[in-house]
Amino acid sequence: MQLNRKDLLGLEFLSAQEIKLILDTADNFKEVLQRKIRKVPALRGVTIANVFYEPSTRTRMSFELAEKRLSADTINFSKATSSVKKGETLRDTLENIQAMKVDIVVMRHASSGAHKFASEFLEASIVNAGDGMHAHPTQALLDMMTLRERWGTFTGKRVTIIGDIMHSRVARSNIWGLTKMGAKVTLCGPPTMMPTDIEQLGEGGIKVEYDLTRAIENADAINILRVQLERQKAKLFPSSREYFEVFGVSPEVLKHAPNGCIVMHPGPMNRGVEIAQEVADGPQAVILPQVENGVAVRMSVLFLLVGGKAEEEEVAS
């Protein structure tokens, strides 16, 4: 089995079946990662470029590890050490990378739509590792994998996403992925960071609730977004102190959620701003399992995009 598409640009373009295929395959790869030799030859001979125009710790390491676990050859690019500093355009940079015979470009870029633009001229497959405020599909997939492991299904489950929704590609990708799989999504955050008509996003409609306790009182999981401190400079909220008071998830706030409500955070965390220390390290948190699943999900995506044809049996074994 493989995905019948060249690129992974965002979850809005995937069907529920395709998302299920990615998650099922990721479950298989996770099993591989528990073995003594955590490596399969599925992408032997495949070359992958990791092109990061924005800083990243987790996503970049996770992709690189996923590629190595699949036996792919990898090259890395980061804006800080590249010719971009000399004024080279995105198009020139990517065409040069492609000229070196690359099969997949994993890219993170600050501009929404950068991957769509790249797909206009690149023959290599493009995997979106984050574009501006638009999409971060593999993050949403690893969030969903983590939830499905605990729930077995998404049908009827309620997920509340808390924080700076406007600037969050993680929120947008989660909305598309979760609603396509049958979960119900509620958003909560300051109105200054709640984008226009977000209720219409996803499939089947989502809810916006500005009161945090009401937003989580029926939640089976909450996903707490990082609040970027530069948003304070843009006057979108008055202070970190007030943010924590109104939208921070403390142990007291979490008591309003049902027992067993799962706590997620895509990282990096501002402890004491959007999430209290005790919550981040508490029994309901799955923040480190999310990171662990990130490798399996990225193996799945890369494999299904280009490696799915000949090597299928090896993975299944």
């Binding site: 999409a135 219409q200 996003l201």
Partner: peptide, 18 residues
Amino acid sequence: SQMNESYWSTKLGLKGAP
């Protein structure tokens, strides 16, 4: 801003001009 502020700017992740 990159486009009109609406559902579409929200969907595309582009900053909107109201």
